[in-house]
Structures are given as C-alpha cells and as structure tokens.
C-alpha cells in the first residue's frame, strides 16, 4: 500500500504530461508523414514543410516584421511610460496604469471592432500592415509597462537619479545612464513577452487582417480550413519551432528579473 502511494504522484504527473504532449507529438508526426490516414507506415517526408514555406513564407516574414515593429513601439512608448509611473507613485498614476492595462481585460475581438470603427474609413491605413501593428501594440503594451515598472519599483530610483544629478547629469543623461541600464532585466523580460505575444496573437489579428496580410496564426487557421491535414500539421510544426525558443527565453528573462527584484 505504502509502495503504491509513493508512485501515485508520479503517475498523475506522467498522465498530465501525456495529456499535453500526445496531441503535440501527433500533430508533429502528421506534418512529417507522407499520408496521415495511412499512418507512419506510409513513410516520413519534409515535402509538407516545403509546401508550407511556398504557400506561407510571406506570413512568416510578416509576423516577424510585425513582432519587431511592435517591440520597437512598446519600447519607445512603454519604457518612458513605466519610468513616469515608477517615479510618481500615487493614485493618479495607479489609475493610469489600470488604463494602460485595459486591453488585457477587453476581448481582442472587441478591441479590433473598436479599431475598425475608428479607422475603418481610412482606406490606406486600414489595408496596411501598420493597422495590425496598432492593434498589437495596444494589446502588448501593458506587458512591457508592467514588467519595467515592477523592476523600477524595486530599486531606489529617485536617490539614484539624485546621485547622477549631483554629478552633473541632466535628465536625458540620467535616463540613458541610470534608468535604462537598471531597468534592463524588466525591459528584456517585457521584450520577450511582447515578441512572443505578437507572433502568437490571433483574435485581434484575425479581425483586422486582409487577404493580403495574413500573419502566422491567421495563416495557420487558413491552412487548417483549406489545405490537407498534413500541410496544416507541418505549419503547426513551423510555428512551434519559432515560438518555443521564444517561450524558453521569456522564462529565463523573467526569472532573472525576479532575482534582481529581491
């Protein structure tokens, strides 16, 4: 009895892992088999991945471009915003922080509809990739701001800046020499989160996209809807290869930021 009870947690863990991993493995195999319905006996192939590349390379590049532009946007807006929030703690700034975080609580669908209503009539903007970029920045900005604010809140920023000022550093120099380097762990963690979220974002992007502007996840939905299962599965595999290293880097960076905050 005692022997058995020791193994139950292990068993549960293994079952949970299997529950998560089996569909993934199945999907990966589906993308690599010649004919999924005949099974592995039909042999392995990279043909489907090649087809994905032919059909959806544009989506991959668009997603990378979007993610990098979104990162630049959130850095330019988010880091100074986080600095202002951290330097002026109080009720007003707390409310501002809540406002910035609002896109997290609103479904992407509603956010997209609001954007369409507001900018739908600007045809040039509506059909350009920058329209999706605006949506992505809105959605990812709170992650950048919060990540940077939490690191900045843990250091005595005011005194550090006073120290720099007493040595002759003006506001811009203090920001570059003192604020940014000390916020770096938060900026790094925020940056990885933003890129990961931007590449994986579907709800909002699906509403905003045009036939010529399909991002990686939108293309994935498209491939499942209109291609053979092997191609769609191969697409999933491509998606994995892109997103998993990002996720791992994100884990590492946020663990590092946590350590610094202690």
């Amino acid at each position: 009895m005692r022997h058995l009870s020791r193994h139950i947690p292990l068993l549960v863990t293994l079952l949970a892992c299997a529950f998560l991993l089996i569909p993934i493995i199945q999907s990966i195999l589906a993308g690599l088999t010649v004919n999924y319905f005949r099974g592995l006996s039909s042999g392995l192939t990279l043909k489907w991945i090649g087809q994905v590349w032919e059909l959806y390379a544009d989506s991959i590049f668009l997603s990378i471009k979007l993610a990098l532009a979104c990162l630049a946007g959130t850095l330019i807006i988010g880091v100074p915003a986080a600095y202002v929030l951290a330097r002026n703690p109080g009720r007003a700034t707390r409310m501002l922080e809540e406002f910035i975080s609002l896109p997290l609580a609103i479904p992407g669908l509603a956010l997209a509809l609001a954007l369409l209503q507001l900018f739908g009539s600007f045809h040039g903007f509506r059909t350009s990739w920058t329209f999706i970029l605006v949506g992505h920045i809105l959605y990812t900005l709170p992650f950048m701001v919060r990540s940077v604010v939490s690191v900045l809140a843990a250091i005595d920023l005011k005194t550090l800046e006073e120290g720099a000022a007493s040595l002759g550093a003006g506001p811009a120099r203090r920001f570059i020499d003192v604020v940014v380097p000390n916020a770096m762990p938060g900026i790094l963690a925020g940056a990885l989160t933003v890129v990961t979220l931007s590449i994986g974002e579907f709800n909002l992007t699906w509403m905003l996209h045009t036939p010529h502007l399909k991002t990686l996840p939108v293309g994935l939905a498209d491939s499942y809807a209109s291609m053979r299962l092997e191609v769609a599965s191969a697409y999933t595999l491509v998606f994995f290869v892109m997103i998993v290293p990002l996720l791992m880097a994100m884990q590492w960076a946020s663990a590092r930021a946590q350590r610094i905050m202690k």
Binding site: I155, D156, T159, L160, E162, G163, A164, A165, S166, L167, G168, A169, G170, D177, V178, P181, N182, M184
Partner: peptide, 20 residues
C-alpha cells in the same frame, strides 16, 4: 541653478551608487 549645474558633491545616506 539646477542641481546638475551647481558643481556640488553629495554623499547620500544610502550611497546611491550605480549598480550598473
């Protein structure tokens, strides 16, 4: 004059050394 123009030296209670 602002602090950065006064050419003073200051030692803070918490030292305010730059960790970076």
């Amino acid at each position: 004059q602002s602090v950065e123009r006064r050419k003073i030296g200051m030692v803070f209670q918490s030292y305010a050394l730059f960790p970076n």
